[in-house]
Amino acid sequence: MKKDYYEILGLEKGATPEQIKKAYRKKAIEFHPDKNPGDATAEENFKLAAEAYEVLSDPDKKARYDQYGHAAFEGGGGFGGGGMNMDDIFSQFGDIFGSAFGGGGFGGGFSGFGGGGGQRRMKGSNLRIKVKLTLEEITNGVEKKIKVKRKVKAPGVSYKTCTTCNGSGQVMKVTNTILGRMQTASTCHTCGGSGQIIDSVPPQADAQGMILTDDAVSIKIPAGVVDGMQLKVSGKGNDAPGGNSVPGDLIVAIEEVEHKTLKREGENLHYDLYISFPEAALGVSKEIETVSGKVRIKLEEGIQSGKILRLKGKGIPSIEGYGKGDLLVHVNVWTPKTLSKEQRQFFEDSLNDDNFAPHPEKSDKSFFEKVKDMFS
């Protein structure tokens, strides 16, 4: 079982953005590879802290994590909110505590990053798309095949060692202070820390040796996702220039298409069923729509308006794998707005009929009791 992100950073749920950033900086400095060379446990803690910060520092991700826990970022097919590697960490969070390690930014001097000497392994930019899903697709899970326009390295492009930093990705600077001569490292401004610059550019490529192409991507979306949830397909974003770079990720935002008759509430679904006075009095069999097809239900004689019928397991699957929600059928007795002369006479004759007078039983809950039950 994955460790709680708040626990990893030593925080309470509801921590402010400033507290989250401060806690992450403290943990990252404590477990930084430069301070713990060869310590596998420290490196793992370093990665966990970065993973926790990646989620908790993003308001949208934090809100989904607070509601669904780690399940908000699970689902297979390359999806996930965690599993960060060193490349992700050093490329994304370099400004959090760069001055703590010689002013050289995140990873300054860490020999295990990008091949040694502080060279930075460049990561391409992420791409973001929206995928619209029907309730049926959300209920069953679905695989979507889409075309994504992404930048990739052009065939024939080549790179050479940066002459400014000699391939290290960093430049050293010596300054005189009252404490003596101090040496600091900073990211090479020529190559951006990759240690390489472009050598040969094909005619169809841009200045960085990239071309735009249509890439077919297959996305496996698990059952039970919610509107606004984001899934990640690793390595399907834009390429980055350089021979030792890695592509970015494809971020998939889920958009739920509104169903014409069903309303979703978490894992439960709601359906409004309208029946006539005669149907309510005599009882009737009705066909209603569910996400898995139509089903027939029987309404007993004398059913009251406001009655809620619960169809077990006819809702949305839990994304955490804890079964399915229910379908709640709300019975509404329709009152006719116009009456014929004969119909009006019938109801006028029935006004003083004790059989038509309301006689609620103890089992017939009031409207407010039903609302209370729904939210409890």
Rank of each mutant, 00 (worst) to 15 (best):
N36Q: 10
E265Y: 05
A240L: 02
V284N: 13
G248L: 00
L250G: 00
F347L: 02
I303Q: 06
G115S: 06
D354F: 13
Q67Y: 09
K61T: 00
S168V: 05
M210F: 04
G323H: 08
N176W: 04
Q92T: 15
L179C: 07
K370C: 04
D364Y: 10
V142Q: 02
F79T: 04
Q196K: 03
Y53K: 02
V371D: 03
K160N: 10
N238D: 15
G156S: 09
Q204K: 06
Q170T: 14
L56A: 04
K27C: 03
T164W: 01
E136V: 07
T184S: 13
Y271R: 07
N352T: 11
N166V: 11
A207F: 14
G242H: 03
A71D: 12
A63L: 07
V152F: 07
A185M: 12
L299P: 07
K312P: 04
V157D: 06
N238Q: 02
P247N: 08
P317V: 06
D199Y: 07
L179H: 12
Q204D: 05
K13C: 01
A23W: 03
Q119R: 13
S276L: 11
Y65N: 03
F73D: 00
F375V: 14
A72R: 02
R150E: 09
K62L: 05
Q119T: 10
K27D: 06
P59C: 00
E12K: 15
N355Y: 06
C188E: 04
K324D: 08
Y53R: 04
V246F: 00
R121T: 05
T187C: 12
S168N: 13
A72D: 09
T261D: 15
K173I: 13
H359M: 13
V226K: 01
V329N: 01
S194E: 04
E289A: 04
D353P: 12
Q304N: 12
G209H: 02
I129V: 15
I29D: 03
G195P: 13
G105A: 11
D4Q: 03
R150D: 04
S91L: 08
Q119E: 11
P37A: 09
G248Q: 01
D227A: 09
L231S: 06
I275M: 11
L212W: 13
G118Q: 03
P358H: 08
Y68M: 12
E136N: 05
R128A: 11
Q92F: 07
D326V: 11
R264W: 05
E143F: 10
K13R: 15
D39T: 07
E265P: 00
L133G: 09
T335I: 15
T175C: 05
T175I: 15
T213M: 12
A357Q: 14
F90A: 04
G323D: 07
K365Q: 12
L273A: 08
G306E: 00
K153Y: 11
Q204G: 01
I308K: 14
P203C: 10
D354H: 11
L48V: 11
K307R: 05
G224T: 09
R181S: 10
V284H: 08
